[in-house]
Structures are given as structure tokens and as C-alpha cells.
Design a protein around this nucleic acid. Structure first.
Lengths: 237, 237
DNA sequence: GACAAACACGAGTGATCGCTCGCGTTTCCT
DNA sequence: AGGAAACGCGAGCGATCACTCGTGTTTGTC
């Protein structure tokens, strides 16, 4: 056999020292800055190394190529995001009235994207390598799925296609508003933008999920809900 | 005087033949395809020339550099869009009830972006050269301004900051939904997505501009409008 | 037909990018 | 202490890119 005597677990079971781990996070931080400033394609590996105050050779000791940097960075961000957001869809939150439910779901997502603007920069560009786009699509799909389940929970007798469309639209609206939030300067202006985004989602979803809106500020909301539960996703006349 | 005998109108009053004009549109069409497929930075001038079935030298006879291609393409798209959209904000449309007003404003924008997907690809990327970003910002600002004027028309006693925020949010929501519309396959699914996007905007803006919503499908909409015209942009409690 | 100018070509140029390689330094283990 | 391996360096390699240039072809004008 031509196999190595060691286990064939991973092709790169490289032994790292503490210094190396520090360098990796340092390089990923630098890469985040450069990706955020110039986008993926325009970001050069030499620029990343310079930003991290190391030589190009050092960079390539920890990453086999440029794509691997983005993949590792994207992977860590995904993991962080799943953690920060995983507790948003717990059953107890799912029983909350709509405004509180929106807070519980939207606030962690906004906070994460404010703290890691590179996430949107990496995921949004069509220039990103295919590997990342796949992971992002998976994360995106899992988020959409959770929203869809939540919608379906309030609309058990609605055709699945309608639930999917509502979930997709709610998420797309959120993403559009998220860009506005990130563009606003930190402080009261950003807070007001966040409140306005929640207002959009509230007014869109309130008639849809109906009975969860008892605490809504608009006193007439219940009238809308009571009027007709059949026009939920509104087939055009 | 060291001036040329001809008028100093433009530094490049190059005399073009019909063949040249055809080549220019042909090259811009090819550039649109390549930009749309790969983004601006990843699109090579050689690839554009190849797509147009001409040599790189021919390309550079009509455009001084790569950026000029994008600028000219962007400029033509801008012009086309201003024309297609200019008739959406005429005073007669401004007097329409909200659903029809929404149709009048949203439909041309969606149709344009469906017909010219390169527009979003060029304008949206942060990789685009500064020249285009400026023009896009100008167009963006003029659209927002029109929306703001429209909002302010319905809320004459509201602080200007609130009108701006509502206009910004409405436009951001539209952009988010637009991506969803473009991602949907042409046909009934896309139409349903468009209808859903209008539903979002309708439900968001209906309580804001109030009295214009008489023809809304929700019969209780007037109750919301009558309830209180002061919570329009909703200061959070 | 003859001349000039616009058009078309494609190999080639300099710059930049992703990435490598050889060699010196630091850290860990015994 | 001493050896092995991880760490760190930066000049430099091949590839690719935006762009040029010398040359040949087509078009408009007289």
C-alpha cells in the first residue's frame, strides 16, 4: 500500500502553536478589513498581509490560497451568526406577540451585522467565490425556513407556496432595511431607522399572522384581523 | 493664441461613421453581458471585446479605458431609466389613490430592472468605479427626493426628518423586494412576487398617507387612518 | 480612381496579482 | 543542551490584466 502510516483523517493535520493561532485570527481580522473596504476580487493577498503586518509568505503558511481566507472567515462568521441567532427562534419566543417576536428575531441579526459589516460585503457580492456563496445560501435557506415555519404556524390552512412567498418577502424586506440601517450613522439616527424597519415588518406581518398582534400600537389592527383571514396573501382581484 | 482653429467644444469631437456607432452599441451590449455575469472588476476588457467579436484594439478605439465603458453604459441606462420613470411622478398620478399610485411608480421601475439586469449589477456593487457611484447616488437621491415630496404632500405637518426616513425606508424596502423579483423566474411566480412587494409597500404606507387609501382591499384600513393621524411615523413608546 | 480618415486587427508591453521557495528564527519536547 | 518542527521573511516566478502600436482594410469625398 502506498498509504502513509498515519491515519488518513485530514490531508492537513498540521500541528499549530499558540503563536500560529494568534496569527490566523490576526490575518482574518486584516482580511475582514480589506474585504470590507475593497470587496473580494479587488482585495489582494499582499494587501491583507500588509494590513496584518506580516509577509506574504507568512500568510500562505496558514492559508493555501486567497479563497481559503474568505472561506475560513465566512465559516467563522456563519458559526458566530448561528449562535447569536439560534436562540431567537426558541419555542418560548415563538409564543410572543408580534412586536416582541420581531424584536427577538430582528435585533440579534442587526447587532451581528453592525458588528461584522464584512459579512454582508462577503455574502452579498456576486464576485465571491462559489464555495462561500454555497455556504451562505445554506444559511440563508435555513433562516428562511425558520421564518416559513413561523408563518405556517400562524397560517396552518394556507397553501405552502403562500407561506414561502411571505417568508421570502419578509426576509428580503429585512435585508433591504438592513442596508439602510448600516448606512445610517451610529446613534439615535440608526436607532430610529431600526424602529422604522420593524414598523415595516410589523405592518406587513400583522394582518398575516393576525391573532398575535394584541399588543400592537394601532388599536384598529384587530379590526383588520377580524375583517377577513382569507385575504392573507391577497390574490390580486 | 495657441487655440486650434476649430471650436474647443469637446476635447474629443471625433467624427464617427455609422459603422462606428453600431460598434459602440455592440460593445456596450457585450459589456453589459460580461458585467452582469462577472461583475465590474472581474470583467476583463479582452472578454468584452471577445463577447462583441472584435479585437481589443477595436474596443480601445471607442473607449479610452475600462472605466469609460462602464460610465457610458451607466449613463445610457440612467437616461433610459429617467425617461421610463419620469412620467411616474406626474401630478395626475400624484392624485391617485395609493394602490394605483403604487402601480404607477413601482411597475416602471420593476420593468426597467427586469429588462436591464446589468443596471443593478453595476450600481449595487461597491466595486464599481467612483464615477458611476456618483451618478447613481445622484439618480438615487433624485428618486428619494420625489418619494419624499410625495410623502410630505400627505404629511404637511410632520417633521422633515420623519418624511425623509419614511421615504428612505420605502425605497430600501423596494430595493430589497426588487432583488427577490429578479431572482424569481419570469411568469406567474414573478408576478406574484411583484404583487407581494406592492402589498408590503401598501401596508407600510397606507397608515402613513391615510386618506389616499379608500380603494384598499382591507375594509378596515379607514379605521386605522381615522384612529390617529399623529402616530404616523410612530415614536416608540 | 485617388486621397484621407475612420475602422479593424492582434501580438506585444509594463504593471500587478496570486503564490512559491530558500533560508534564517523561535518554540517545543526530551 | 540539542534537534525537529513550526514560524517568519521577502525577492521573485508565471499568469493575467489593462492598454498600445504598427499595419492593413473599409468608407466617404472629390
Amino acid at each position: 500500500m502506498s498509504e502513509k502510516p498515519e491515519m488518513p483523517e485530514d490531508p492537513k493535520p498540521r500541528r499549530r502553536q499558540a503563536r500560529g493561532e494568534r496569527r490566523i485570527t490576526q490575518l482574518l481580522q486584516a482580511a475582514a478589513n480589506v474585504f470590507c473596504a475593497n470587496g473580494y476580487t479587488a482585495a489582494s493577498t499582499n494587501a491583507i498581509a500588509r494590513e496584518a503586518h506580516v509577509s506574504p509568505g507568512t500568510l500562505y503558511q496558514y492559508f493555501p490560497n486567497k479563497e481559503a481566507i474568505a472561506v475560513e472567515l465566512g465559516g467563522r462568521l456563519m458559526h458566530e451568526m448561528r449562535e447569536a441567532h439560534g436562540q431567537a427562534f426558541t419555542p418560548e419566543n415563538l409564543a410572543l406577540p408580534l412586536p416582541e417576536l420581531l424584536d427577538a428575531v430582528v435585533d440579534p441579526l442587526i447587532a451581528f451585522n453592525c458588528a461584522n459589516p464584512v459579512f454582508l460585503a462577503l455574502m452579498h457580492g456576486s464576485e465571491t467565490p462559489g464555495r462561500i456563496a454555497e455556504e451562505h445560501d445554506a444559511l440563508h435557506a435555513s433562516l428562511i425556513e425558520r421564518v416559513r415555519v413561523l408563518i405556517a404556524h400562524y397560517l396552518p390552512d394556507s397553501p405552502p407556496a403562500d407561506c414561502v412567498r411571505v417568508a421570502d418577502m419578509a426576509f428580503a424586506v429585512f435585508k433591504g432595511g438592513l442596508h439602510l440601517v448600516l448606512a445610517a450613522p451610529e446613534g439615535p439616527e440608526r436607532d430610529a431607522t431600526i424602529a422604522e424597519l420593524k414598523q415595516v415588518l410589523l405592518r406587513y406581518l400583522d394582518p398575516v399572522i393576525g391573532e398575535g398582534a394584541l399588543m400592537a400600537g394601532a388599536t384598529a389592527a384587530r379590526a383588520v384581523a377580524a375583517a377577513d383571514a382569507g385575504l392573507t396573501t391577497s390574490r390580486n382581484p
